[in-house]
């Protein structure tokens, strides 16, 4: 026989709400994370759909993506900011999602700890590298063949 859930109003709790459990502070981090997933999700939908449209649909789509194409985009602060926002929001959103998956499926404390350390390392490495690349990118490197560079580079 299947267990059934009783219908009707829920019984009132038999004891008062306990004081906040150890480790929790005035702000509820899990609630903030839950809200962040939703707000960043909306922004990421716009940012990523725009990214996919410009890089895969417009023009010859994927065939025109090369160094000169990236150089042309990042010459504009608009696309620098677009890609930076996408990088940070997607990495925080994705890392928090992976944290949830680890919490759900890794049952041993030690396994969870190891996976979360790896996740944090991947997060820091990827965000740092990506941010540095966006801001230190050199569209016209000296000595590079001119036909590989954006058209605005001075002929070398």
């Amino acid at each position: 026989m299947a267990t059934t859930i009783p219908a009707g109003p829920l019984a009132a709790p038999r004891s008062a709400r306990t004081t906040r459990s150890r480790g929790s502070s005035r702000t509820n981090m899990e609630m903030v994370a839950w809200l962040f997933m939703r707000l960043s999700g909306v922004l990421l939908l716009v940012l990523i759909f725009g990214h996919l449209f410009v890089n895969l649909v417009q023009g010859e789509g994927i065939n025109r993506i090369d160094f000169a194409f990236v150089g042309g985009k990042w010459a504009s602060p608009f696309w620098q900011f677009w890609d930076l926002a996408m990088l940070w929001l997607a990495m925080i959103h994705g890392t928090n999602g992976m944290r949830t998956i680890i919490n759900d499926y890794a049952e041993r404390d030690r396994t969870r700890l190891v996976l979360k350390v790896l996740l944090a390392a991947a997060f820091l490495l990827t965000v740092t590298l990506g941010t540095l690349v966006i801001f230190t990118f050199e569209p016209c490197p000296i000595g590079a063949p001119a036909d590989l560079l954006p058209s605005f580079c001075p002929a070398s």
Binding site: T136, P141, A144
Partner: peptide, 23 residues
């Protein structure tokens, strides 16, 4: 998508190495 994102940031980072490597 998360794992693609990690790879995609790495491959894009090759623009910092050289135009040839990225292409």
């Amino acid at each position: 998508i998360f794992f693609f994102l990690l790879v995609h940031v790495l491959d894009t980072s090759l623009v910092r190495v050289s135009p040839e490597a990225y292409n």
